[in-house]
Amino acid sequence: MRSKLFVPASRPELFAKALAGAADALSFDLEDSVTPERKPQARADLRVLLESSDALASDKTLIVRVNALSTPHFAADIDAVARNGVSLVNLPKPEHPDDVLAAAAALEAAERANGVSAPIGLLLNVESPRALRQAAELAAAHPRVAGLQLGLGDLFEPLGIARRENAAIEQAMFALRIAAGEANVFAYDSAFANIKDADGFRAEAQLARAFGFIGKSCIHPSQIAIANDVFRPPDEDIAHAVRVVVAAREADAKGVGAYVVDGRMIDPPFVERARVLVSDAARLGLLSDEQRAVAGI
Rank of each mutant, 00 (worst) to 15 (best):
S3Y: 07
F6Q: 06
A9F: 10
S10G: 07
P12G: 05
A16Y: 02
K17V: 12
A18I: 04
A18G: 01
L19T: 07
A20S: 13
A20W: 10
G21Y: 05
A23K: 14
A23D: 10
L30V: 13
L30W: 12
E31I: 11
E31F: 05
D32W: 02
V34Y: 09
T35V: 14
P36R: 04
R38N: 15
R38H: 13
K39V: 08
P40E: 02
A44Q: 15
E51S: 12
L56T: 13
A57D: 15
S58W: 11
D59M: 08
K60N: 11
T61E: 15
L62Q: 09
V64I: 15
V64S: 06
R65C: 15
R65E: 13
V66E: 06
A68T: 08
A68L: 07
S70F: 05
S70H: 13
H73P: 02
D79Q: 15
N84P: 06
G85D: 14
G85A: 08
L88E: 09
L91A: 12
E95M: 11
H96F: 09
P97T: 04
D98M: 08
L107T: 02
E108S: 06
A110S: 01
R112G: 00
A113G: 01
A113K: 06
N114H: 01
G115S: 03
V116I: 07
V116N: 09
P119Q: 02
N125S: 15
P129R: 11
A135D: 09
E137A: 09
H142I: 03
P143W: 03
V145D: 14
A146L: 11
G147M: 14
Q149M: 13
Q149A: 10
Q149S: 09
L150A: 07
G153N: 11
D154Q: 03
L159V: 04
G160W: 09
G160T: 13
G160S: 14
R163D: 02
R163F: 04
A168Y: 12
Q171K: 15
Q171Y: 11
A172Y: 03
A172R: 04
F174C: 15
L176Q: 12
G181H: 14
E182S: 06
A183V: 09
A183Q: 12
N184K: 15
V185G: 07
Y188F: 12
Y188L: 14
D189E: 11
N194G: 08
D197P: 07
G200H: 08
F201V: 10
R202N: 12
A203Q: 14
L207P: 04
A208Q: 03
R209L: 10
G212Q: 07
G215P: 12
K216D: 13
K216V: 13
S217E: 08
H220K: 10
H220W: 11
H220S: 14
I224L: 12
P233Y: 08
P234R: 09
D235P: 11
D237Q: 12
I238Q: 02
A241T: 03
V242E: 01
R243Q: 08
V244P: 02
V245Q: 01
A248T: 02
E250H: 04
A251N: 10
A258S: 05
Y259S: 00
V261Q: 01
D262S: 01
G263I: 01
G263Q: 00
P268G: 00
P269H: 00
V271D: 06
E272T: 14
R273Q: 11
V276Y: 08
A281V: 10
A281D: 06
L286F: 03
D289T: 11
E290P: 00
Q291T: 02
Q291H: 05
R292D: 04
A293H: 07
V294D: 01
I297W: 13
